[in-house]
């Protein structure tokens, strides 16, 4: 319940955050809303030597129209995504899914950047970022780089963000027409046992999976089956292809594969595919 001791530094700007990260080395962690990191620290499953608090960088909290994309500041809280007019217009799936993360209290503190940077395959928003062909804007000592979502998630709790880098913005494609998010969990406040995001950004449906492997995944086999003219029910049969779900207290890998097939079918149907 009591985290191990750490050094604390509050960043007044993005640049200061990056220099603080460089200064404190690899064992330092970025603290945004803290709702992924602090629970681990309380159980002492994470014991960072220093926390660089970026929580006050208001300049990273926004949702903006960026032409064919929508740009979201990394420190935008789930609650702000939930009630964003801009998202309601251009990517309502993001608002909807933000409203399913954790519980209201978590949504008042947790941020999209924190959720994506944590790299937990059981999180809801990373799969949506993947489905909307997200671009992750990362800033470091050498400047800014943009990583496509397809190359961002490296493994369980591992992402493309370097130890002295900060995720500053997430750019998503706008959605067109129907979409669906199927979250299957036992309790409302639980992580998804399996989740499925379905959205269309350029006419063809994109399908992404939550908690079906070490990272969020695109259901590539489903997408190509649909492109080849398969019905939603037919395409959904290949939902677990290429997935490598784990077995845990919530579900066996076998059941997760089954759920993925059912939820993909339902998602495609709800999205009007």
């Amino acid at each position: 319940m009591i985290p191990a001791a750490f050094e604390y530094a509050r960043a007044g700007s993005v640049d200061e955050a990056i220099s603080l990260l460089s200064e404190h080395g690899e064992d330092a962690k970025v603290l945004a809303g803290g709702h992924s990191l602090l629970p681990l620290m309380k159980l002492r499953l994470a014991t960072p030597s220093a926390l660089i608090d970026v929580g006050r960088l208001q300049e990273l909290s926004y949702v903006r129209d960026a032409g064919d994309r929508i740009a979201i500041g990394a420190l935008t809280r789930h609650r702000d995504l939930q009630v964003s007019d801009e998202l309601a217009r251009s990517a309502p799936i993001v608002s909807h899914v933000a409203g399913l993360v954790g519980d209201p209290q978590v949504r008042h503190r947790g941020t999209i950047g924190g959720s994506v940077a944590h790299g937990d395959p059981a999180s809801d928003l990373p799969a949506v970022v993947l489905a909307l062909d997200g671009e992750l804007v990362i800033r470091g000592p050498a400047g800014e780089r943009v990583v496509p979502a397809s190359e961002f998630f490296h493994g369980f709790l591992e992402t493309a963000i370097g130890p002295d880098e900060l995720l500053v913005e997430i750019r998503l494609r706008k959605t067109q027409g129907g979409w669906s998010y199927q979250k299957f969990n036992r309790r409302a406040q639980d992580w998804a046992t399996v989740g499925v995001a379905v959205a269309r950004t350029d006419g063809t449906p994109a399908v992404a999976l939550v908690n079906m492997g070490a990272t969020p995944l695109r259901a590539a086999a489903v997408e190509s089956a649909l492109a080849a003219g398969a019905s939603p029910a037919e395409a959904a049969e290949s939902a677990a292809e290429g997935a490598d779900p784990s077995s845990d207290i919530q579900a066996s890998a076998e059941f997760r594969r089954h759920l993925a097939r059912v939820l993909v079918r339902r998602g495609l149907e709800e999205a009007g595919v």
């Binding site: 629970p39 309790r187 409302a188 639980d190």
Partner: peptide
């Protein structure tokens, strides 16, 4: 988190 203590929503 792991023990499924029932909530109002269920």
């Amino acid at each position: 988190a792991d023990y499924e203590f029932v909530s109002a929503a269920e």
